[in-house]
């Protein structure tokens, strides 16, 4: 972490004052979704709830929404395609049981 030569460490784009508000709003939404998931215990809430939380964290907290479109596609497609292969390879085991 000592290397400071990366292109993102250029100070030119630094805002004068950081905007924390958006992170607290996302935080609030995440807490509300979590509460809903815990209180309802309904799979119809749980699955979209998990997807919504993961999307909020990845896009806003991890700043994926500020990255280049090709990078978002690169990361998202890698995880989705490789996970699908992983899950698909379990099917033959299920049939053998």
């Amino acid at each position: 972490m000592t290397n400071d030569t990366g292109p993102t460490s250029a100070p030119s784009t630094a805002p004068a004052t950081p905007h924390y508000g958006v992170y607290f709003r996302i935080w609030g939404v995440l807490l509300v979704i979590t509460l809903l998931m815990v209180l309802t215990h309904n799979p119809a809430i749980l699955l979209p709830g998990m997807a919504a939380k993961a999307t909020l964290i990845a896009l806003w907290f991890m700043h994926l929404k500020d990255e280049r479109k090709d990078f978002i596609f690169y990361i998202a497609s890698s995880i989705v395609i490789l996970s699908l292969i992983l899950f698909a390879l379990m099917v033959p085991d299920g049939k053998a049981m």
Binding site: M1, T2, T8, S9, M50, K53, A54, I57, H63
Partner: peptide, 25 residues
Amino acid sequence: TDNGVEVAGLYWHFVDLVWVFIFGC
């Protein structure tokens, strides 16, 4: 460095993201 903090942050958010699925599933 802002880069160092950001990279550490990515890791920490990912750990939080994984917990979303562990907690739910």
